[in-house]
Amino acid sequence: MLSKPLMTVHEVAEVLKVSEDTVREWIHAKSLRAIKFGREWRVAVRDLESFLNAHANRDPTTG
């Protein structure tokens, strides 16, 4: 069972305040891990969190 829901490309774009095309580019470049269901992509919340952590410009533990 999934502990966290899967997000659509639209939902990811809304959360990050970027275009859906940008999210799709990240997916196709394999920067953002996603799962394809038919013609649609879904992103696990944990994968979005990992993507954001990997692209952060500072260590959140250092304040």
Rank of each mutant, 00 (worst) to 15 (best):
residue 1 M to R: 08
residue 1 M to F: 12
residue 2 L to W: 08
residue 2 L to A: 13
residue 2 L to G: 03
residue 5 P to V: 15
residue 6 L to R: 14
residue 7 M to N: 06
residue 7 M to P: 03
residue 8 T to Y: 03
residue 8 T to R: 01
residue 9 V to N: 03
residue 10 H to Y: 08
residue 10 H to V: 11
residue 12 V to D: 05
residue 13 A to R: 01
residue 13 A to G: 05
residue 13 A to S: 05
residue 13 A to P: 04
residue 13 A to C: 04
residue 14 E to Y: 05
residue 14 E to L: 07
residue 18 V to E: 00
residue 18 V to G: 02
residue 18 V to A: 02
residue 19 S to G: 11
residue 20 E to A: 06
residue 20 E to V: 04
residue 21 D to G: 15
residue 21 D to E: 12
residue 21 D to Q: 09
residue 21 D to V: 13
residue 22 T to Y: 04
residue 22 T to P: 01
residue 22 T to R: 04
residue 22 T to I: 06
residue 23 V to H: 00
residue 23 V to Q: 00
residue 23 V to L: 02
residue 24 R to Q: 05
residue 25 E to S: 11
residue 25 E to V: 13
residue 25 E to L: 13
residue 26 W to R: 01
residue 28 H to A: 09
residue 28 H to Q: 10
residue 28 H to P: 06
residue 29 A to W: 12
residue 30 K to H: 15
residue 30 K to N: 15
residue 30 K to F: 10
residue 31 S to F: 12
residue 31 S to E: 14
residue 32 L to V: 03
residue 32 L to P: 03
residue 32 L to C: 05
residue 32 L to M: 06
residue 33 R to I: 14
residue 33 R to E: 15
residue 34 A to V: 01
residue 34 A to C: 10
residue 35 I to T: 15
residue 35 I to E: 15
residue 35 I to K: 07
residue 37 F to E: 10
residue 37 F to I: 09
residue 38 G to A: 09
residue 39 R to K: 13
residue 39 R to I: 07
residue 39 R to A: 07
residue 41 W to C: 02
residue 43 V to G: 01
residue 43 V to N: 00
residue 44 A to G: 11
residue 45 V to S: 10
residue 45 V to G: 04
residue 45 V to N: 06
residue 45 V to D: 10
residue 45 V to Y: 07
residue 45 V to K: 03
residue 46 R to C: 13
residue 46 R to I: 09
residue 47 D to R: 00
residue 47 D to H: 07
residue 47 D to M: 00
residue 48 L to E: 00
residue 49 E to K: 08
residue 50 S to W: 11
residue 51 F to C: 02
residue 51 F to H: 01
residue 52 L to E: 08
residue 53 N to W: 06
residue 53 N to K: 14
residue 56 A to N: 11
residue 58 R to F: 12
residue 59 D to Q: 04
residue 59 D to N: 14
residue 62 T to K: 09
residue 63 G to S: 11
